[in-house]
Simulated assay, not measured.
Amino acid sequence: MNHPDRIDVHQHILPPEYSQWLRRQGVAGAGGIDLPRWTVDGALEVMEAFGTTRSILSVSTPGVHLGDDREARAMARVVNDYAAQVVSEHHDKFGFFATLTLPDVDGAIAEANRAFIELGADGVVLIANSRGTYLGDPSFDPLMEELNQHNAVVFVHPGELPGESVDGIPSFAMDFLLDTTRAAFNLVKCNIPRRFPNIRFVLSHAGGFLPYASHRISLAMVATGARDPFEALRDFADFYYDTALSGSPAALPSLLAFANPGHVLYGSDWPFAPVAAGTYFNSLLDSTETLDDTTRVEINHRNAEVLFRRFASRLTVNDA
């Protein structure tokens, strides 16, 4: 088949200083996976193998806040400066989501402004829960207001659940999916998408369990007295979703049936997801039994071209 021309909205970057800092803090991995090594050359090699022409880089869980606001602010500057430098040197290949400092709201607002105004970030990455406080919590409203003013794209990535893990079940296998689902529920329950309508939220890994269980989840809005369930369903469908580790014949039809048109984006989750996993899911996306040609083009790159200003010129060319 032709080169798929993918735009990857879910590729992780691990600046060397950040990886070293995590290990000094006793963090050797994320979600049950050892910290991988990321380099520009390695990323470009994998992108070539995957048929990816552009990637938007982001730092994964645990982010930069490990309990100390001051340390978190310093490390956020380090990782964002590093990512911005990579983009500057390879502007035709990369963009980046800026890392913020939640639950330190003041630090997050300051870094968001710096990232958008000085560094040219494509959006921000927020962990679904920050030390047990989920996105949507009223304490985060000042940051939401700031992101709304920037018309920000917010990439929501899962983290460790605020509770005990189950021995023998890696967090990435199930807990991460629940964490994203909880964040999506709380965002809608607290009416964040309607109160801050300029923010576009991208949910990792096809939104966790959300598309599959969306109607059941929406009924909980009645139980909590928070929102009309049908209105909540419309807000859930208006999120954006990536296909990282989720582009299977079992998961993808549910996602496409639920999400609004144009709201499904390609994601690889490399390097936390190994090349073999990316190759497997890419082959499913490329299969004519999984997707029709139009939908495949939309997921591979067209929907991202519409969402991100960085790709506006590409959209014009592709539409010509």
Score class of each variant (00 low, 15 high):
Ser139His: 05
Phe116Asn: 00
Arg302Ala: 15
Ser165Gly: 03
Val222Met: 01
Asp242Lys: 06
Thr53Tyr: 09
Asp228His: 02
Gly42Thr: 11
Pro249Asn: 05
Leu22Ile: 03
Phe176His: 06
Ala183His: 00
Tyr280Ile: 02
Ala250His: 15
Glu289Lys: 15
Asp81Thr: 04
Ala251Val: 11
Phe311Leu: 13
Leu100Pro: 00
His12Gly: 08
Val105Trp: 04
Asn260Leu: 13
Gln20Val: 04
Thr316Lys: 03
Thr99Cys: 07
Glu48Ser: 09
Ile299Lys: 06
Arg24Ala: 05
Asp68Cys: 15
Thr101Lys: 04
Tyr212Trp: 10
Thr243His: 02
Glu111Phe: 09
Gly123Trp: 01
Gly132Ser: 14
Thr53Cys: 11
Tyr212Ile: 15
Leu252Ile: 13
Thr39His: 06
Asp68Asn: 15
Val264Asn: 00
Ala110Asn: 09
Ile7Thr: 07
Leu315Val: 02
Pro16Asn: 08
His12Ile: 10
Leu315Gly: 02
Ser246Gly: 05
Ser58Thr: 11
Ala251Gly: 05
Val154His: 03
Leu57Glu: 02
Gly63Asn: 10
Arg200Cys: 07
Thr52Cys: 13
Ala226Lys: 06
Val154Cys: 03
Asp68Ile: 06
Glu164Gln: 14
Met75Gly: 03
Glu48Gly: 13
Ala304Pro: 09
Phe94Gln: 01
Asp68Pro: 09
Glu17His: 11
Leu147Cys: 03
Phe96Gly: 11
Ala76Gln: 08
Leu203Ile: 00
Leu315His: 04
Val306Thr: 14
Asp269Arg: 15
Gln149Arg: 15
Ser165Trp: 02
Asn282Val: 06
Gln20Ile: 14
Met221Val: 09
Pro15Tyr: 08
Leu256Tyr: 06
Asn318Phe: 14
Arg70Ser: 13
Glu111Thr: 12
Thr181Val: 06
Asn300Arg: 14
Ala226Ser: 10
Tyr134Gly: 00
Gly208Arg: 07
Leu119Ala: 00
Val125Phe: 01
Leu233Met: 13
Phe308Asn: 11
Ser58Tyr: 03
His150Tyr: 08
Arg309Tyr: 01
Thr316Pro: 00
Leu178Val: 05
Thr99Val: 08
Asp319Val: 07
Asn318Gln: 10
Asp235Ser: 10
Asp5Cys: 06
Ile117Cys: 12
Phe230Asn: 14
Cys190Trp: 08
Phe96Asp: 00
Ile192Lys: 12
Asp81Pro: 04
Met174Phe: 11
Thr181Cys: 06
Ala232Asp: 02
Pro261Thr: 05
Ala312Ser: 14
Phe311Glu: 02
Asp242Trp: 02
Arg6Pro: 05
Leu187Arg: 02
Val79Gln: 00
Asp106Val: 02
Ala273Cys: 15
Ser283Phe: 10
Arg37Asn: 11
Phe308His: 02
Val317Trp: 12
Ala76Cys: 02
Glu89Phe: 01
Pro253Leu: 09
Thr181Pro: 01
Arg114Tyr: 12
Ala128Glu: 00
Met1Trp: 10
Met144Gly: 00
His157Met: 07
Ile299Glu: 03
Ser165Tyr: 14
Ala273Leu: 03
Leu291Ile: 13
Arg182Met: 10
Asp179Met: 05
Thr181Trp: 06
Ala98Trp: 07
Ala250Leu: 10
Asp92Glu: 15
Ser254Pro: 00
Leu315Gln: 03
Leu265Met: 12
Asp167Ser: 15
Val40Ala: 02
Ala115Gly: 08
Val124Thr: 09
Ser283Ala: 04
Asn129Tyr: 08
